[in-house]
């Protein structure tokens, strides 16, 4: 494992929301070509961490390296250049609802390249084929089911042939079978396109299906990083409570009520 090249490196990340420390010195490394899962309870800061990794938020202190570029110190043009090197798959898919499937998937290509429209059409067909949605080009997002929207979102995320893809809760709100489909898709794409994937989720089944390595976050800190096996056999009571979904344990309910509040703000 150790000889892997580091694709994304987060160093000592600290972030405050209204005086509350949401990220409390997070450090982790994502290797090239692996599927790295970030898991943790609601409000543990995992979505916030992801937003920092995509450059959507700026931390109070700490560094985020994407390759050799530090996202926290770049100016807007340089940030834009880095952003083109990765794709992001949103929890709600975040398709633009006045554009049809084809226009949504081709949007980054139309905005960032000078390719001929015919070539863009072919590229879009390829990407849609990869996510199993050939022939859906002319539908509007409102006509699609949740799982299909996610797959279109994924096709859009890979439309610029990125080096890495970030997934925010890719299986949230989907039925178990569609969850499995999306998980398989993530694995397939990784293999076919040699992607580095960072997945934020709290769906345990999906964690153990797709992860090469897992980071467990709790209260803005990294509790443990390891392979799924290591996490499964973890001695940490919090990790054990979380992966087994037990009511009793170190994480008590009152604490979670607090966390829910500030998850809403994040």
């Amino acid at each position: 494992m150790r000889e892997h090249k580091v694709a994304i490196s987060v160093q000592n990340l600290v972030k405050f929301f209204d005086g509350r420390k949401v990220l409390d010195g997070i450090s982790l490394e994502v290797y090239q070509g692996e599927t790295f899962v970030i898991m943790g309870g609601s409000g543990c800061g995992k979505s916030t961490l992801l937003r920092h990794m995509t450059g959507a938020m700026k931390p109070e202190s700490g560094k985020i390296f994407f390759g050799d570029k530090d996202l926290t110190t770049l100016n807007s043009d340089e940030t834009e250049a880095v952003k083109r090197r990765f794709g992001m798959c949103f929890q709600s898919a975040a398709l633009l609802d006045y554009l049809n499937v084809e226009e949504n998937v081709s949007l980054p290509l139309r905005e960032h390249t000078t390719l001929d429209p015919k070539i863009i059409r072919i590229l879009v067909k390829m990407k849609l084929n990869l996510v199993g949605l050939s022939g859906f080009e002319n539908l509007m997002p409102s006509m699609l089911s949740g799982g299909m929207k996610k797959r279109v979102g994924l096709a859009r995320a890979i439309s610029m042939d990125p080096e890495a893809v970030f997934y925010d809760e890719p299986t949230a709100g989907l039925d178990p079978i569609v969850c499995a489909v999306v998980d398989k898709l993530i694995l397939d794409l990784n293999k076919k396109l040699l992607l580095t994937s960072v997945v934020v989720t709290h769906n345990m089944e999906s964690v153990f299906r797709i992860a090469d390595r897992v980071a467990m976050l709790h209260k803005g800190r990294v509790l443990q990083i390891g392979t799924p096996e290591e996490i499964k056999n973890s001695q940490d009571p919090i990790v054990q409570q979380f992966i087994n979904g037990r009511l009793e344990g170190p994480i008590n309910f009152a604490e979670n009520i607090d966390d829910v509040n500030f998850a809403g703000e994040g």
Binding site: A56, E80, A94, L95, L96, P108
Partner: peptide, 21 residues
């Protein structure tokens, strides 16, 4: 509604400036 549905953020992550777009 684009803002609350993460679409503005999506534009931003696609390196498409929402103000320009």
């Amino acid at each position: 509604s684009m803002q609350v549905n993460e679409q503005i953020e999506a534009l931003d992550t696609m390196a498409i400036n929402p103000v320009r777009f």
